[in-house]
C-alpha cells in the first residue's frame, strides 16, 4: 500500500519505452528486461544484443542534454557522480537501501543506483544541485534549512529529492503521509524530526 501511494520504486516510468522508442543503436538484451511488467509486445526478445563496449549516449540532466560515453553496465549514480560531477547523489549503501542517491526521473523519485545510465536516455533526470542557485532556492531546500534537517549533510540531498518528488505528486499531504512516504531514506546523524517538519511544510506550499 505504501508503495502504491508513494510510488517510490517500480516501473512507473518505462525502460521499455526507451528500448522501443529510442533511435539509438543501443538496444538492451532480453535478460535486462525480463523482470519488468509491461505490454506483451514489449516483452518480445530484443532483436539486438547490446555490446559491453562503451556507448555514447545523451542524458537530459537538470534540463540540459549531455553526451557521455559509458559502458552499458555503468549505473546512473556512477554516471552522474563520475562523468558529470553531480555528486549530490551520494553512494552510501552499495545495495539500493538507503536512498542517499535519490534523483527525480520524469518527476518521480528513484534511487539512481537502481538504473543503468543507458536506461534513462530520453527521460528527464533532476538532481539536488538544481534546487539551489544564487538566483533561486527551492522550497524544499529552504524548509530543510529552517528546521535544520541537516547535520553532516551526507544523506540530506537524497532526502531533499525524496521530499521534492513526494510533494510534487502529493501536494497538501498530511504529516502521517509524509512519514510513510519518506521511509526509503536512511540518516545516521538523526535529522528525521526536521525532515518530517520540512516535508509537511513543503507539501502545504505545493498545494
Amino acid at each position: 500500500m505504501e508503495r502504491d501511494e508513494v510510488n517510490r520504486v517500480g516501473a512507473g516510468f518505462s525502460r521499455r519505452e526507451f528500448l522501443k522508442g529510442s533511435g539509438a543503436a543501443v538496444v538492451a538484451g532480453a535478460a535486462a528486461t525480463s523482470a519488468v511488467e509491461g505490454p506483451l509486445e514489449a516483452q518480445q526478445p530484443a532483436t539486438k544484443i547490446i555490446s559491453a563496449e562503451p556507448h555514447t549516449i545523451k542524458l537530459n540532466v537538470n534540463g540540459k542534454d549531455q553526451n557521455l560515453t559509458v559502458e552499458p553496465r555503468v549505473l546512473l549514480i556512477d554516471a552522474l557522480r563520475n562523468d558529470l560531477n553531480l555528486t549530490g547523489c551520494k553512494d552510501v549503501c552499495d545495495r539500493s537501501t538507503c536512498g542517499a542517491c535519490t534523483v527525480l526521473i520524469d518527476g518521480k523519485p528513484v534511487y539512481a543506483c537502481t538504473r543503468f545510465a543507458i536506461e534513462v536516455v530520453g527521460q528527464k533526470v533532476v538532481t539536488a544541485e538544481s534546487l539551489h542557485s544564487l538566483e533561486k532556492t527551492d522550497d524544499v531546500v529552504t524548509a530543510f534549512c529552517k528546521y535544520d534537517a541537516i547535520q553532516c549533510g551526507f544523506c540530506t540531498p537524497g532526502f531533499v529529492m525524496a521530499v521534492r518528488g513526494f510533494c510534487n505528486q502529493n501536494p497538501g499531504a498530511t504529516e502521517d503521509a509524509c512519514r510513510r512516504a519518506l521511509g526509503g531514506n536512511i540518516c545516521r546523524c538523526g535529522i528525521y524530526d526536521g525532515v518530517l517538519k520540512a516535508a509537511y511544510d513543503t507539501a502545504q506550499i505545493a498545494q
Binding site: 557522480r81 563520475n82 560531477n85 553531480l86 555528486t87 549530490g88 547523489c89 551520494k90 553512494d91 538532481t127 539536488a128 544541485e129 538544481s130 534546487l131 539551489h132 532556492t137 527551492d138 524544499v140 531546500v141 530543510f144 534549512c145 535544520d148 534537517a149 541537516i150 549533510g153 551526507f154 540530506t156 540531498p157 531533499v160
Partner: peptide, 19 residues
Amino acid sequence: RVDGKVKASGQAKYTNDIN
C-alpha cells in the same frame, strides 16, 4: 546553518565527491 543550502542541495563537496 550558514552552509545549509549548499549541503541540502548536494553542492557541498565531501572527500567522497572530489573528482
